[in-house]
Computed example of a mutant assay.
Amino acid sequence: MSPEPSQSDPSLKSLAALMRELAGAEILPAFGRVQARSKADGSLLTEVDLAVQERLINALERLTPGIPVLGEEMTQSAQQRLLSGASPRDPAAGEAGAFWALDPLDGTSNFACGFPAFAISLALFRNGRVELGIIHDPVRDECFSARLGQGAWLNGTPLNSAQNCERLADAMALMDFKRIPPGRLSGLLRKGAFRSQRNLGSVALDWCWLAAGRAQVYLHGGQRLWDYAAGRLIAAEAGVVTRLLPPGLAESTEQLTLEPRLALAAAHQALFDQWWEHVGLPWQD
């Protein structure tokens, strides 16, 4: 059983029910049947992304009045204003610098093409850190959730990342090749580096599957706040060792930013150390 929330937070159970309802009404009926268009950054957008974002924002305004929502499909200027205003140093900012970070449909390209790997991702920030994360996979009806310092769960069952993989050569790797410098690929893929490799096309599910022990190491070259906020908390609370790094640097950072971050993770510290050495950061390509 997941712990009781603080008085100012909705329960994980109520958030899971809300996500399941939205998925049944907006996402699953349109799966593989919706038209997508390209955004300025080349990623895809559908009417489903916008509908889920609008409905979730309205629901969260009722559940947690005074806590704004930073959604992926908002304009960048609106996102930046909200992020700046949510600084814990700003006494005028909502509830102690609190805000929700929402990706209404992580894996839109998968969704539009009929590939069954996408999710709704939602995280609650307070004072610059994530306190709650919840991710709903509509296809598998799997709801991953976590509270800072209290654990992570899959449909209410506690999660622990796989601890029985000691050698990198035995690990399943999740890697996104699109955002890795081409000159680094041959070294990453050298024979014997890991057992096998997958790319789900959904950052939120990448983190959740790490938490569930379905993979043991992870590398993604550029994900944004709404991509990693909920999933990284879920993975960390399940025991996964994680780092977020600015491109070209080897020092981790927890600074809130809209800029992309390289993500590196492994199921436990000994495996992370092997993975870190293999990946060879920082990249200067």
Score class of each variant (00 low, 15 high):
80 Q>E: 14
88 P>Q: 07
187 G>R: 10
252 S>M: 12
74 M>Y: 11
126 R>E: 15
207 W>C: 10
237 E>V: 00
57 I>Y: 13
4 E>W: 06
167 R>E: 15
242 T>R: 00
169 A>W: 13
212 A>P: 07
218 Y>C: 10
68 P>G: 08
95 E>Y: 14
185 L>F: 00
166 E>Q: 11
209 W>E: 06
22 L>Y: 01
4 E>G: 03
151 G>Y: 04
263 A>S: 09
13 K>C: 07
137 D>F: 05
283 W>F: 14
94 G>L: 14
18 L>M: 09
16 A>S: 10
52 V>G: 01
125 F>W: 13
243 R>N: 01
21 E>W: 02
158 P>I: 01
63 L>H: 11
144 F>V: 03
219 L>Q: 08
82 L>D: 14
73 E>P: 11
136 H>Q: 15
223 Q>A: 15
141 D>L: 07
228 Y>F: 12
190 R>Q: 15
64 T>L: 07
227 D>E: 00
165 C>N: 02
6 S>W: 11
179 R>H: 15
171 A>Q: 15
183 G>V: 03
33 R>N: 14
261 R>M: 02
203 V>C: 10
137 D>K: 03
67 I>K: 04
279 V>T: 10
23 A>I: 00
206 D>W: 09
77 S>G: 02
99 F>C: 11
243 R>G: 02
231 G>E: 01
252 S>I: 05
205 L>F: 07
209 W>Y: 12
213 G>F: 00
199 N>C: 15
237 E>R: 00
77 S>C: 11
228 Y>M: 09
27 I>D: 11
116 P>G: 07
96 A>S: 09
184 R>M: 13
105 L>M: 03
73 E>A: 04
167 R>S: 12
208 C>G: 01
239 G>W: 08
247 P>N: 02
54 E>S: 11
10 P>W: 06
152 A>W: 04
147 R>D: 03
70 L>K: 12
149 G>R: 10
207 W>A: 14
185 L>K: 00
213 G>D: 04
79 Q>K: 14
168 L>A: 10
170 D>R: 15
76 Q>A: 13
4 E>K: 04
77 S>A: 15
278 H>C: 09
166 E>L: 15
215 A>K: 10
258 L>I: 08
59 A>F: 00
187 G>V: 09
198 R>S: 09
135 I>T: 05
23 A>K: 09
25 A>W: 03
283 W>Y: 12
92 A>N: 08
219 L>V: 05
104 P>N: 06
39 K>V: 05
264 L>N: 04
142 E>Q: 12
164 N>Y: 11
42 G>E: 01
228 Y>E: 02
221 G>R: 10
258 L>Y: 02
45 L>S: 07
196 S>Y: 05
136 H>A: 01
26 E>N: 13
226 W>E: 02
77 S>T: 07
170 D>N: 08
116 P>D: 03
250 A>N: 05
270 A>R: 15
252 S>G: 15
33 R>D: 06
213 G>Y: 03
166 E>D: 03
